[in-house]
Amino acid sequence: QSYDYDEGSETWPFFVLAVLCVVLVPLTAMQLWELVSGGQKDQDLKDQLNVLGKMSEQYASSEILEFRAKNLAKKSKWLAKRNLFIIAGWTVVAYLVQYIGSNDAIQDAATLLFDPYTLLDISTSSTDREIRSAYRKLSVKFHPDKLTKDLSPEQRSVAEEQFVLITKAYKALTDEVTRENFLKYGHPDGPQATSHGIALPKFLVDSSASTLMVLGYIALLGVILPYFVSRWWSKTQSMTKKGIHVKSASYFSDRLFNFKPSQVVTLDLIVNWLSHAEEFKLMFPELGQETFETLLHDQVNRKHSGTLETAKLGLVAKSHVLLFGLLDIATTFRNLEISNMAIDTLKAIVQATPVSPYSQLLQLPNVNAKSLLEGSVDDIRTLGKLFTYDDAKIGKILGIDDNTKLQETLTIASAIPHLKLIRAEFKVPGESVVTPQSTPHISLKVLVRSAKHKFFGPNLIPDEMCQDEQDFDSLRDPFASILEQPRLPQTFAPHFPGKRSGCWCALVVLQKDGKVIQTPMLIDRLSFANLNKDFDKRTVKDLEKDFKPEDWVIGTIKIPFSQPAPAEKGDFFFRVIVKSTEYFGPDLDFTLAMAVRE
Amino acid sequence: TLQYDSNSKLLDVPDASEDVEMNVKQINKLTQDLVAESNPNFTPQPREDSTAMIKKLFENGLKQLQQQKMADALKSVNLAVEMAQRKRAPWEAFAVQLQELQFMMKNRVDLCLVQGKFMDALQDLDFLQNTGLTTSDVFIRKTDALMKLKQYDQARAEVERGLSLDPTNAKLRVLHMENTRRLAEYNG
């Protein structure tokens, strides 16, 4: 009851200003950061090979472009709201600052502050001599004995007050006791009167307004706050670490737990599991599990879903994160077949091509499936084999009559990246061998090449090109050098609703029991520079003469190993599988021995 | 709700989940076999007459193999395997049943391979691997079958696994080289 209220509007502007700044400063910083880094990301995409991305736009259907445009509009609307809030916020801040500046009551309170430097009219970094000389000059001017006779009594008392203040200021800067007081309490005379109050104008707390205020507080603390907190909490609780719904994760776990080894793992099985995902039910509560399954199959078989086409695109966009969640769970259950098929299913959905022995060719645009499967005499299943024929013959094999279309298809086919293993080893940073109980990681040197390039053995690449930097930083963090490689460019995926660049998934399997030993490692940085090279297998005749290893860029993949090396000496075998999530064909699958020695 | 038919001595659980249904089927199978068992003092010891029958059929097959009558040999061995599956009671020693089956299956695999039935051989080999037989000869035959079926990537995975368990096996090494050559051709 004895509290003072903010009659003179002295305190509440500062309160509002503080609250606004707490919100606006981080928000503005975040927005500026996004603007800058967004520009950087675009630059990265431009740096890498972009022919696949451009072609992908060209071949995308109108529904997909519409779908993307709608999503972009949603995103930019939210961004516009955020920007609006930032602008409005800073405008209010500017107004408040100006209000504070012009408010007399606040200014009066400010003048009560004791500032010896302004009183003595010197700068804050003056020396003792400067202070003394300033004091002497002013005291001469304002000393009561030195004042002129023709001053009015009021002028006299003002001068006398000024003299007292000047003396105090001098003492505050020189005399020990006064200076201590000044530093502790801000005033040489010791603690001044302080007042405590509430930063609200009285009318808000008095009479009728007070009931409104109380109701307002009750609503805020008892209703609005709990509502938002509980909504946020249930949203966080409903998602797993990998970003899928807990119900979906528990469904996948249940399927894997009850998985019978006699069951053959097919695309149909994975799609069936996916169709039970909770995310789909939440997105389309009016559709059932069987519809989801049918729509996903439509995507893989490039069938138009009629009225459900937009729904299908929504499901397909969501299936990306669901498949990664399934992959994570499958590796935790150590099941290699499911892990492999999950990645293959992602490929099938991205390329809208079923998993079959001919997927590598069917993923290309303009291919006539019928003439491919029934046509040629030789059974061609791989891109590499396809490029052993000349362009005209390829056109016949793929059933493409139009020459422009054929050229586009060939451009895409030769731009699909294939991984070629150059070197592979288990490495312990700082050691020359893998010692017992050490922490090795798997270091791979790969060549990203086109199916069109002539094959050359890994021993044609000299060891010097495969060496890593041996400096202190690389020993401390062997994975830092990976970040120097550029990000993957856009994938050719005209049937996928979003723009994507994908990644490669690295799985490590113990050969002894054939089971996966750790969660997958995602690789999203590799240089595609080699794909531009013209090293056509049909034209290069003499490998020895034409091959120049220094023209080729070697990529590095480092896979962390989740367990320490075994305690005994010996040879331990692991199978390393590096699968692309985007294209059929560019995968690696090999055995790597870990030689544990003293 | 559990329902029991006292005439057929069988249980039934309508609208049950997959697991419960399987359990009920197993209980019913066990009940039927127990009811059909004539000897009140049955033991886990494999029955003499079943063993004799299975052995006879199998040896028949071997004889036909020696006479180069491959198709007939396969038929006899198939019969022997089917007999083992049907005649053996579920309470007879598992180790004996498994060994008997695996032995006959190994011969069936070879007969299939010789007659070009690669898919059949592959499934039998998968069965042998799944039931714990991870010897090198299984890997050798599986690699061979996969190569014949043009599944060169899978063949490579098999032969590499075989080599990691038996690094000095000459036959596996030869198969590995051959498969690498075929893979190179397959990829142009």
Binding site: K260, P261, S262, P357 | L101, M119, Q123, F127
Partner: peptide
């Protein structure tokens, strides 16, 4: 024994699935 039997009986179905796939 029953598990073994089930695995054995799956052979025929697996053959069909693989034949279709390949």
């Amino acid at each position: 024994n029953q598990a073994l039997k089930r695995r054995f009986q799956a052979i025929l179905l697996r053959k069909e699935v693989f034949s279709e796939q390949w």
